[in-house]
Write a protein that binds this DNA or RNA. Structure first.
Ligand SMILES: NC(=O)c1ccc[n+]([C@@H]2O[C@H](COP(=O)([O-])OP(=O)(O)OC[C@H]3O[C@@H](n4cnc5c(N)ncnc54)[C@H](O)[C@@H]3O)[C@@H](O)[C@H]2O)c1
Ligand SMILES: NC(=O)c1ccc[n+]([C@@H]2O[C@H](COP(=O)([O-])OP(=O)(O)OC[C@H]3O[C@@H](n4cnc5c(N)ncnc54)[C@H](O)[C@@H]3O)[C@@H](O)[C@H]2O)c1
Lengths: 208, 208
DNA sequence: CTGCGCTTGTGACATCGTGCACAAGTCGGT
DNA sequence: ACCGACTTGTGCACGATGTCACAAGCGCAG
């Protein structure tokens, strides 16, 4: 099988995870690994890993396993992480700032090219070497900077409006952190990371 | 059906979502809603919502729909959000501080009772009215404060060690933000919120 | 009290995701 | 050159998840 069918989110997320684990192995100096060893080490499923990889071709050597460097490299290109992706952060509050700082360190495949807020005390100031624009300039700045992915870290009440401003500005994907159910635009790939819901799930299982 | 079987994460997360949407309806003054209206308004599935609720009993009135207040109240107790849950935050960097601040505002069902770090410049200082302890005191402070859920926001390299310190200290659940695959303790309910993997999923689908 | 329209709760069905087991294939030793 | 030990890639079966369609139930009008 090559790559005609649409890949599921679950598979894709696991591929990212595999890559991360492979990098750990690289750091440890491991050059070869079998799916069994890999799975045991990282508490994953060996057969599932093989099946995930099978969506994209053959990566291993029967009888031997996988060459760590090789698999890592192929996963990197496969996931598009060998290219640089331009990010815009909308909402430079405590979360937005943390994200911006985090991405500045970890700048391998992602690069922040624009930041937005509405707070007069923040607009015009710099975060690192990046000036914070006013949100009303989203339609102008997004195309200029060629931002492809937007990170939404504004209050829930502003999220939908910002989302729509972003979509009409030609953004290709949005990662939303606001605890709200966005009315999605079909042409923009949208995901939400919902801290609150995850916390509530844990709370459900507590004894008292 | 009442509640013998284990409820799936997916269902549980949607229940949290429904509750959040119901609160929006309450704020808007809506008193009654049918699953169809609800689903259309929030871009959800009506039949799935009914099935999710069915795990826990009957909540609606046939021919009429649901009373918003009533359903919200029942979901709140059902999810355990009428009780206060004690949180500990481990790793008071930019993300940990953002989370602490966020939870201090949004303090309805969650209350931060302890904070930890190893950085000498942070330990002993206060965040709000809460003193930051040294991580080595986790085994002492967690039981004292009766923290039930820990939020892990330390660097990936420290995550496994902190996780284990927490588990032996009697924590009941952990929400991990570090980009690493934790070796899980079976008695501790553990979830990860993985910003990086979500970002990489979006990147995969970008055109260029 | 009866009938009608509406909505829930639910069983049957379709789809999707995962675990299992094994044939196909590779390598190293003899 | 062949064998045996090992691992991948994969077909199959099972379980989980979501959709559909409808009987059961409720309220209101007459
Ligand atoms: N730990 C956290 O802080 C955390 C965790 C999970 C989710 N969230 C969510 O992330 C979002 C941001 O959280 P936060 O803690 O950073 O809040 P915050 O109040 O610190 O920051 C919000 C920022 O958004 C800006 N803003 C408001 N309206 C805007 C608009 N229309 N356009 C651009 N910027 C605008 C504000 O000026 C502010 O700087 C919230 O929706 C919150 O629920 C936060
Ligand atoms: N936007 C973000 O900042 C962001 C987003 C997603 C995930 N994350 C992840 O969350 C974690 C924290 O991110 P951050 O940006 O806050 O990093 P940070 O460097 O700002 O903060 C990390 C904090 O953890 C403390 N620490 C280190 N070892 C510790 C230990 N053993 N016990 C207790 N505390 C310890 C450090 O002193 C520091 O204060 C990282 O794993 C990061 O990958 C961060």
């Amino acid at each position: 099988m090559t790559e005609p069918a649409e890949i599921s989110s679950l598979t894709l997320n696991r591929l990212s995870l595999y890559l991360r684990c492979l990098r750990q192995l690289q750091d440890a100096g491991t050059t070869h690994v079998s799916s069994g060893q890999f799975a045991q080490h990282f508490e994953l499923s060996a057969s599932l890993m093989r099946k995930d990889l099978a969506h994209f071709g053959e990566f291993g050597i029967r009888g031997t396993g996988y060459r760590v460097d090789d698999l890592a490299a192929r996963l990197t290109t496969l996931l598009g992480l060998d290219r640089i992706h331009n990010l815009a952060v909308v909402g430079m509050g405590s979360l937005g700032s943390a994200l911006a700082r985090y991405l500045s360190f970890n700048d391998k495949p992602f690069r922040i090219v624009a930041a937005f807020d509405v707070d007069g005390r923040k607009v015009g100031h710099k975060i690192g070497h990046l000036v914070i624009h006013h949100s009303r300039d989203i339609p102008e700045v997004i195309p200029q900077t060629e931002a492809q992915i937007a990170v939404l870290s504004v209050p829930a009440s502003a999220a939908q409006q910002c989302y729509e401003d972003l979509t009409v500005s030609g953004i290709e994907a949005v990662l939303n952190f606001a605890p709200t159910q966005l009315k999605q635009h079909p042409a923009v790939r949208t995901k939400s990371v919902d801290f609150q819901i995850n916390l509530e799930e844990l709370a459900y299982f507590l004894s008292s």
